[in-house]
Design a protein around this nucleic acid. Sequence first.
DNA 1: ATTGATTTAATCGTGTTCGATTTAATTTGA
DNA 2: TCAAATTAAATCGAACACGATTAAATCAAT
Lengths: 156, 156
Amino acid sequence: MAEKKTEDFQGFELDQHLCFAIYKANHAFNRFYKPVMKKLGITYPQYITLLALFEKDHQRVSELGERLFLESNTLTPLLKRLEEMGFIARARSKEDERQVIVSLTDAGRGLSDGVIDIQHCAFGNLDASLEKVSELVDQLNDIQRTLTAAKEKVSA
Amino acid sequence: MAEKKTEDFQGFELDQHLCFAIYKANHAFNRFYKPVMKKLGITYPQYITLLALFEKDHQRVSELGERLFLESNTLTPLLKRLEEMGFIARARSKEDERQVIVSLTDAGRGLSDGVIDIQHCAFGNLDASLEKVSELVDQLNDIQRTLTAAKEKVSA
DNA sequence: ATTGATTTAATCGTGTTCGATTTAATTTGA
DNA sequence: TCAAATTAAATCGAACACGATTAAATCAAT
């Protein structure tokens, strides 16, 4: 009862850290999806990017970036690879030549079947109910919003 | 009630995806910690690595790798940077010359004060109780274990 | 004791991420 | 109108992550 130090505040036990738990879970998703992605010829970040395009086609690079929390320095090369593979097309906007519009090709849209399979595969392995998962998603989104807001506050 | 397709299974709404929620939360932790880490002169992965060493000093590279889910191809250069900065020492084991033992230096141990501050900082911004966080950590660890086990199963 | 298999870390190439800068197009204001 | 400020994407360099390979040390098993 006497010793307090760091024990009452997570201390150094890595497994008690929320950031480490999230790091590990993210890592596990990465490793789980990677071999499945490989069959489609894409990487995990490319998969996430395609999901954003399935949700809404014909987005600007910066629009995609807002959705995925990435900027042109990351997206430009990634999109170029997707373009080389023939899954998307990139074209300067007629209205504003600064903007590049990213669109799915037929081949890109064709990936959606494989993607659905992947989702079933991952979800089938988590023996959790839809409600439980949905609740967890909400909690994680709360944390994300809180940390993002806190960072804004600090850097302001 | 007629349409089924993908809607009853998360479909393409990115925000309903557990993997995306985790991706975002991990990203938010990264962005939140980054400027704080910068004051200490280290990166987020280096921070995680140091946490593992605070928990247990004098680990082999492969031991650290198991803990952090990384391998020598990632750890070797990262550890070399921590060594250059004087936070750790790397030395071949006398018993087995193949092994490299990673140890904290005084300067490395000295970082732990700053690290405690960082943890307070992050935790103070999450207006969640310790129990709530602990519960969330357990759920995330469950997911990680499940996905890791599922991957083993598939690759076997 | 020597050959062959295994283990450990290091190395290499590709892709992702990010801070910082650059280039080009658009908007603003004098 | 035309220079200055702003915006959008691209580029660059450093760090991280990973599959695959390599080099060196150890172990196994005759």
